[in-house]
Design a protein around this nucleic acid. Structure first.
Lengths: 337, 337
DNA sequence: AATGGGGGTGGAACCGCTTTCATTTTGGAA
DNA sequence: TTCCAAAATGAAAGCGGTTCCACCCCCATT
């Protein structure tokens, strides 16, 4: 059908091995031969068949990315980082979207197989404990990105320190002079075992403690991840006998709900209420929302770098890299009235 | 290294061919043999090597998706549709992100090759004219999703009729009683030759014409795709001696800019100004923005379906399928004061 | 009882590449 | 000029599947 290495060899009057050497830049070819073969390759518009190459090499030259797409910018940014790092390599990027726990479990078992891929990136998806052992013993290297979990120490991972992030956000508010700081997030228990909200909560607690501020249980609310629910929860907080003067929302989406609540109650932001979010999504800039920014793109890049190292056989022991989180100050936080 | 078909054959005391037949559900195996082989397969935890399979079959069992991710929800939705349709097939989804014209041109040449993939989905990316001919003559089936271009008639494609969409949006405003309707969009000329904005503009013109409304050039503005620029342009429109009573923004992002401009000028929406967007992105619902919704997820599904048909050899001639666009009425449009 | 046909089966070729290994060629030293 | 090590080369053996084809066996037909 299409032109093969045999055609090139015949046409150039050399053996298969020589053509293969030319393709793979082996030094064991004389300049003259190389030149001749290269010419024929160009003439015939020959492209080596990657499938045959993979089979012969015993490698798949393929990296799998397992992640819940969601409809969040964070996913795209991480994926961009991953893709960009893979451009200049031989590796293909094959994608596995997870939207149910069933699919997650199916992929956790079927994707990381020697015959399928050379490496796996699992993004924003903590595995079940049942899968942990098999993942840790898996012959193909695995790197987890953004899946911090106490029991993940046997896996390579790029973590985002949400505890520190939550602490930073809270400290920013405290530094502005706020004494009554509330925390609003999505539920701590989710089907996918996301720990971000809980970690940020822990950071919040730590910041309070360090500042010597009293922890008030009534200042911590959690509910479904949507601006509508966030608004209701924020209304609840702001109608307390002694309402908070600042609210730390565990995501920008929820911060939007808080802003909406403030508007409903006629509270001016930031004069009467400070609001800080988390993620730095696109509209955050538009709305002037102060927030915590993660290095999403960079986390993808680092993940690929680590995975490549693992594939190359470096790292006998699991490596854990931490990505920094930075405060982006905009117009929704200010000292209390 | 890992267990192969040969191991299974030996263990089961049958020939390779028989094991292969069992794997591929060939009817040419007796029930007894099938049962025995299946048991051994399970026992040895055998998984056929996809690479070897591909080489032998002469298929890559791989679909390429070439698309600019951007950081837009629209991308993720289309991709979700594509991925979902591929789950129950043998096909892998490999991803090619395009962020520069150089990459686009490189991918247009290197990706659609027999030895690489069985089919290609090109999403939201009109090819250059130079590439058109080679794409049309390409031995591997190609389906364009959301890349409407007059000269694309020789390629399979799923189109979103932006002319109709633009017309609908405009007609909605006219039906409400607006006589002075403006159109605000991103620039018609882009490095990637996107035609959406221009098509929507044409729809806008058509709607005006049908309603017998006078076209005013000063009511049409275009600039970079961002809410900030959109706000400036909207301010310009609203400060005209005879300002429009309704603005059709070519994207929700830009509609946000319009809303901001209205706020700056103290105009109440929708009482004093109607605004309609396009895309129905996530915040649109949050802000109650009236907008045009595309069937993004479904466009991905249809693209895969069409591609599979093309791979199967149906469709001697290029097929063009049109996806509907629907009006989502929310709280930013109303009859003029 | 001989014949024909069809279902079941296994051997072997093949997919297109890489790589080992044996062989030939080359270049420089003796 | 001879000789040897090093460089260059090609044949062939995989990689792990699929499938063609020849073969065997069994049963129904004549």
């Amino acid at each position: 059908m299409s032109v093969t290495i045999r055609d090139v060899a015949k046409q150039a009057g050399v053996g298969l091995a020589t053509v293969s050497r030319v393709i793979n830049n082996s030094p064991l070819v004389s300049a003259a031969t190389r030149e001749k073969v290269s010419r024929i390759i160009a003439e015939l518009d020959y492209h080596p068949n990657p499938t045959a190459r993979r089979l012969s090499l015993g490698k798949t030259l393929t990296i799998a990315v397992v992640t819940p797409f969601f409809t969040r910018p964070a996913f795209v940014e991480r994926l961009r980082g991953i893709h960009t790092s893979l451009i200049d390599t031989d590796y293909d990027l094959v994608l596995y979207n997870v939207e149910t726990t069933e699919r997650r479990d199916a992929y956790m078992r079927s994707v990381p197989r020697r015959e399928r891929v050379d490496g796996v990136l699992i993004v924003s998806l903590p595995p079940r404990n049942e899968d942990l052992i098999s993942l840790a013993n898996c012959p193909v290297p695995i790197v987890m990105i953004d899946a911090n979990h106490p029991s993940l120490t046997m896996l390579h991972r790029i973590v985002i320190n949400d505890v520190t992030g939550g602490q930073c956000a809270t400290e920013h508010l405290i530094a502005l002079g706020h004494q009554r700081v509330a925390y609003l997030s999505d539920t701590f228990e989710t089907p996918f075992n996301f720990t971000a909200s809980y970690d940020r909560y822990r950071g919040y607690r730590q910041a309070l403690e360090r500042a010597g501020l009293h922890y008030r249980p009534e200042y911590v609310v959690a509910g479904e991840h949507s601006h509508a629910v966030a608004r209701q929860m924020a209304l609840g907080l702001l109608r307390l006998p002694e309402p908070p003067t600042a609210i730390f929302a565990a995501s920008d989406t929820q911060a939007l709900g808080v802003l909406e609540a403030a508007q409903v109650l006629g509270l001016r932001v930031p004069e009467q209420l400070s609001v800080i979010g988390y993620d730095d999504i696109e509209v955050a800039e538009y709305l002037g929302l102060t927030t915590m920014r993660q290095q999403l793109f960079e986390s993808g890049r680092r993940g690929v770098a680590l995975l490549m190292e693992a594939i190359a056989g470096r790292h006998a022991d699991p490596v854990c890299e931490e990505m920094p989180v930075t405060l982006v100050e905009r117009r929704t936080t200010a000292p209390p009235a």
